[in-house]
Design a protein around this nucleic acid. Structure first.
Length: 463
RNA sequence: GGCGACGUGGCCAAGUGGUAAGGCAAGGGUCUGCAAAACCCUUAUACAUGGGUUCGAUUCCCAUCGUCGCCUCCA
């Protein structure tokens, strides 16, 4: 079963073939670390994680590089825009460098909680300033740059193919007249190097052949991907919002310097929406993974939720649907746990029929909704429990739900709750059911639920 | 203004030129002192609207309405 992936560049499904084994080379655009990631951001990283796992499921070793954008960029294209890192620095009292480190760590913690595999290599923009300068010099030597009062710009009119991937209608963009031009020659031109403003004291600035300043946003990805993966590698990923600007400009830079379109496949994850709206701080809806945890959700319930939609379709977040994912995940975990109980005989073999169908679904442009439907089909099948268990755990290499590790946890209970529970047991034993019910109410008021099982009462914190 | 996407039962969401996966919710049952959990069963005249093409459209085309995204830092 061939692996087929949707390539934004050609706007078509293409069979994936590695350019150069032994490794598949994958670059995924990472976060700008001036604030926490929200669950919309994280949806894209889950998509990329699934992609990587599917590649590995197809027995391709993957060299995966992710950048961390820790250089401050302007909040708008206008010269007056504020720098996000500098702004964040003022907001938090940390230096820009501390700020970057802090949010990078928070980001990595989110990935870990979601079972997202770490990239083979992390790279930071500020660790590659010299390389970025060299890259800009390469573009400059080939005649694609010009200088304005505030920076070195890329002249997009020199590139006949500019904007191909995004299918940009350049004239239409100009008709919009919503772009601050400054001294730019074309509305689509963008900064390669920005000068520090006269008199401004930036925390992050470097000297360059053109003057003191900092690199433009797009250059870091072209530079670092070339550095670690070569100038034409297998797959480059990011969010759908990157198609029109960021990735378009990465391609332009790389074409200007190396003559390649950077990656053989361009793949984009679509947005999570909150009440049919884009999730962004500016519109008020900003849910962090931690927000979900604070509400008592398992982080993997969010991963389960993300698996319910295709990566190339918008996904609408509601608490009701997250509840559904959480319930479904727990049912799946419980089933698998019970299939693995001692006394079920020898470890099962993976069922080849289901394995084949699963491969077909994930290889069909990562159709996780279909793959999950197959999982439920398997769960309800008549196969031996040990076989079901082995098969689902085999699928979990792609799903990443840590199904093998899960087991019911005994929660630590406050002593007073414990006392109430044991009093209730006593009351039940003596058939004083009214008292027992009253005690249940008290426990409930303390935020805990009692479940009576043949092994005795099980108490857990109410979500 | 330009470009693009989407509109499937209460919620989330697949999919196909021959009337539609899956999960959750809901209803009933088993179990339970009562519950919960679990398990079993069941349900719903669900494919935005109006045209067109076709033997036949939810699936193709056009229009309308609605929603959303990108064009500016953005997953």
């Amino acid at each position: 079963m061939a692996l087929r992936l949707f390539d934004t560049y050609t706007r078509s499904l293409r069979e994936f073939k590695p350019l150069q084994l032994p490794e598949v080379r994958l670059y995924t655009c990472g976060p700008t670390v001036y604030d926490y990631a929200h669950i919309g951001n994280l949806r894209t990283y889950i998509f990329e994680d699934i992609l990587r796992r599917v590649l590995e499921f197809n027995n391709y070793p993957v060299r995966h590089v992710m950048n961390i954008t820790d250089v401050g960029h302007l909040t708008s294209d206008a010269d007056t825009g504020e720098d996000k890192m500098e702004k964040g620095s003022r907001r938090t009292g940390m230096t820009a460098w501390q700020l970057a480190e802090f949010y990078a760590q928070a980001f990595k913690q989110d990935l870990q909680r979601l079972n997202i595999q770490e990239p083979t290599l992390w790279c930071k923009a500020t660790d590659h300033i010299a390389e970025q300068i060299a890259f800009i010099q390469c573009i400059e030597a080939n005649g694609y740059t010009y200088r304005t009062f505030d920076g070195i710009y890329f002249d997009t009119s020199r590139l006949p193919n500019y904007g191909y991937m995004a299918r940009l209608n350049i004239e239409g963009l100009q008709a919009g007249a919503r772009v601050e031009m400054g001294e730019k020659r074309n509305s689509t031109d963008f900064a390669l190097w920005k000068f520090s403003s006269p008199g401004e004291r930036r925390q992050m600035e470097w000297s360059s052949p053109w003057g003191v300043g900092f690199p433009g946003w797009h250059i870091e990805c072209s530079t670092m991907s070339a550095e670690y993966l070569g100038t034409f590698f297998d797959i480059h990923c990011g969010g759908e919002d990157h198609i029109a600007v960021h990735h378009t400009n990465e391609i332009a830079q790389t074409e200007a310097c190396h003559g390649t379109r950077l990656a053989n496949f361009w793949m984009h994850g679509y947005f999570l929406q909150l009440d049919e709206q884009k999730m962004a701080k500016s519109t008020g809806g900003f849910l962090r993974l931690q927000t979900l945890l604070d509400r008592g959700y398992d982080p993997l319930a969010y991963r389960m939720f993300a698996l319910s939609a295709h990566y190339r379709a918008k996904l609408n977040f509601t608490w009701e649907s997250l509840d559904g994912a959480a319930t479904a995940l727990n049912r799946l975990r419980t089933a698998i746990y019970e299939w693995g109980s001692p006394g079920d005989g020898p470890a099962g073999q993976v069922d080849t029929g289901y394995a084949q169908r699963f491969l077909e679904q994930v290889n069909d442009d990562l159709n996780m909704p279909r793959a999950m439907a197959l999982v439920w089909d398997l769960v309800k099948s008549d196969l031996a429990p040990a076989v079901k268990r082995a098969t689902v755990l085999y699928f979990d290499r792609v799903l990443g739900l840590s199904l093998a590790e899960w087991k019911p946890v005994a929660e630590a209970l406050p002593p007073e709750v414990l006392a109430l529970v044991s009093q209730r047991q006593q009351a039940r034993k003596e058939k004083r059911y009214k008292d027992a019910d009253a005690l249940r109410m008290q426990v409930s008021a303390a935020g805990f639920e009692i479940e009576d099982t043949p092994q005795g009462p099980r108490v857990h914190q109410r979500k």
